[in-house]
Amino acid sequence: MHRGKGMKFVGDSRIKANNRMVNMPKDYSEYPGKTEAFWPDFLLKEWMVGAVFLIGYLLLTVAHPSPLEGPADPTNASYIPLPDWYFLFLYQLLKYTYASGPYNVIGAIIVPGIAIGALLLVPFLDKGPERRPSKRPLPTAFMLLALASMIYLTWESVVNHDWEAAKAQGEITDEHLGLVPEVELDKEAEGYLIYSGEQGKSCIACHGTEMEGGGAAPRLLGNELTAEEVAEVIKNGRGAMPSGQFAGTDEELQVLAEFIASLKPEE
């Protein structure tokens, strides 16, 4: 029995040099050239390539934090779904007439199935000894065709997607973060009628009908001010809020200030 001793192998492989298959490509050891020890010389160079790659990778990570939308809500029927970018070409394929609806099986199963199957069986479909792409035109042509169609489909998917609408959906709201205070808003209260009435036109315009705030205007529900402080802010303004916006009388202002100050969650 051979125990490896005295046996000839092809290059650094474990393929025996004798009774070699005629079909097998020539080994590099049959070409003049400078080989290099894997350990440690070549591995060091690989590590340098890896380090450069890692820098780019980390820059990408730091420059673009990974996205996170609001928590999944299955009841939202208007959400436009989008898979990760490397599935976009399949997603696009399923939009064409003969790959969707009654022909769904073609787009979802047959086309991808043929592609994966052909890829898996490439060594048995292309059995010739030639390795240069130019010497095996059919495999090269099919692969280039597949590449071109994947790029085209991905491109089509990207230009047809409504990115504006997609950006606006799935936002994380204060509600998701548990920041909405549990305060009941009594819309029949005198204060609210002033807030929503003619005098409070500019109040409701920024702070909203639910007093939920928006843009630069803070949420009024669950504020931490006293009635005096609220009246002060309404009269003189604060931060982005301009002064003198309230059009009612001083009595109405007092009622409104007390109403807003009362919008606190129960302890």
Partner: peptide, 29 residues
């Protein structure tokens, strides 16, 4: 670890051999 790396896959000898780095980088990621 103890094997020779042939010239044609070594980017230090032929820059175009960087295409042979993709497998290693896949493993790295």
């Amino acid at each position: 670890a103890d094997h020779e790396v042939p010239e044609h896959v070594n980017p230090a000898h032929h820059f175009s051999a960087f295409v042979y780095c993709f497998g290693g980088l896949t493993f790295f990621v």
